[in-house]
Design a protein around this nucleic acid. Structure first.
Length: 326
DNA sequence: AAACATCTCAACCGCGAATAT
DNA sequence: CATATTCGCGGTTGAGATGTT
């Protein structure tokens, strides 16, 4: 037995909204709000629509703070960076782009960014790093547990990152402000921790550009996905004795703590296999590998041409476990 | 100008999570 | 605590717009 439908599909209108319906919904919400119940709202408002349809129409189109129009380069970079960090959590990514909805971001990724970065999701051989504007890479890693570089998008000083859009900026009452997902809370907490050290990227385009190579192998033209994988995680070394550390690694799937590890410098030899096992997820689960239908990851991981250097010299993300611990 | 291909994006769907009863 | 209801999300679809031949 399947799930009961949310409304009587035979008696609701579907398809594009008319201007009259938009006006009706908008007026009703301005006067009454949702009343805490989208399902019963259409009936109260006099609309022959499913409640879910009303909610979607409001959130994705009618809300007064929606930003229409094309995405800026800065927005692109934020989307790309956050996509790599957390995968297709469109609502979280959208929360960092004022005026943009998860649907907008998702559509933009699927129709523009994927092609911009890879020249077609199903043909990685078309990928051409030289077609991507080069911007300075700004990896940041700090062994001394200091705060991160001010230039990157994960900066604590940037209030939009990992926080839902403040509803106070909305001049009209928001009928149903989206609650801040717990993921955001957790991430924000992690990133405000004064011991945190991690590897953000300011521009994924720049990372791809850094991976241009002197060889002609199509695979070697791909970015170093080993180093990209690490961007899904934040890594923190807390010194427990002069020569020993506890290693705290957080990822979207959880937190792993490893006690009594050697100095971070020595961890550069950690193998890909042990690292991915430590994270409890396989590289094949990685959003970018999934996106590309990637199979032969080892070859990419071993690609020496894809070492990327930040302004600080402490980081050379050449392999799993290496990017933040070098 | 017409036919066809491709792109865009609003809308729908179904699921898991959260909340109410 | 169990069940029902609602919400919110990510994946997918398809109509209309736009580009190409």
């Amino acid at each position: 037995m399947g799930r009961a439908p949310c409304c009587d599909k035979a008696n609701v209108k579907r398809g594009p909204w008319s201007p009259e319906e938009d006006a009706t919904l908008k007026n009703y919400l301005h006067k009454h709000g949702t009343g805490g119940n989208w399902i019963s709202l259409p009936q109260r408002a006099g609309l022959k629509r499913c409640g879910k349809s009303c909610r979607l129409r409001w959130l994705n189109y009618l809300r007064p703070d929606i930003k229409h129009g094309s995405f800026t380069e800065e927005e692109d970079n934020i989307i790309i960076s956050l996509f790599y960090k957390m995968g297709s959590r469109w609502s979280v990514i959208a929360a960092n782009l004022p005026g943009r909805t998860d649907n907008d971001v998702k559509n933009h990724w699927n129709t523009k960014l994927k092609k911009k970065l890879f020249g077609g999701s199903n043909n990685i051989n078309k990928f051409n790093p030289s077609s991507i504007p080069k911007i300075d890479v700004s990896f940041t890693y700090n062994h001394n547990h200091n705060h991160i570089n001010n230039n990157n998008v994960f900066n604590n000083n940037n209030p939009s990152i990992f926080q839902a859009n403040p509803s106070s900026s909305n001049p009209t009452p928001s009928p149903s402000p989206s609650p801040t997902p717990s993921y955001i809370d957790n991430t924000n907490h992690n990133f405000n921790h004064h011991h945190q050290s991690y590897v953000p990227i300011t521009s994924f385009s720049s990372l791809l550009a850094q991976c241009s190579t002197t060889t002609t192998s199509p695979m070697s033209m791909m970015p170093n996905f080993a180093s990209l994988s690490n961007m899904d995680h934040s890594i923190e070394f807390i010194q427990s004795s002069p020569s020993r550390y506890s290693l705290h690694q957080s990822s979207p799937t959880g937190l792993a703590v490893q006690e009594n590890v050697a100095h971070p410098e020595e961890l550069s030899s950690v193998s890909a296999g042990s690292s991915s096992a430590m994270y409890g997820s396989s590289l094949e689960d990685d959003p970018f590998f999934a996106e590309l239908g990637f199979g032969l990851i080892q070859e990419v991981m071993m690609n020496p041409n894809c070492s990327t250097y930040g302004d600080q010299e402490d980081i050379k993300p050449q392999g799993l476990g290496q990017s933040v611990a070098n």
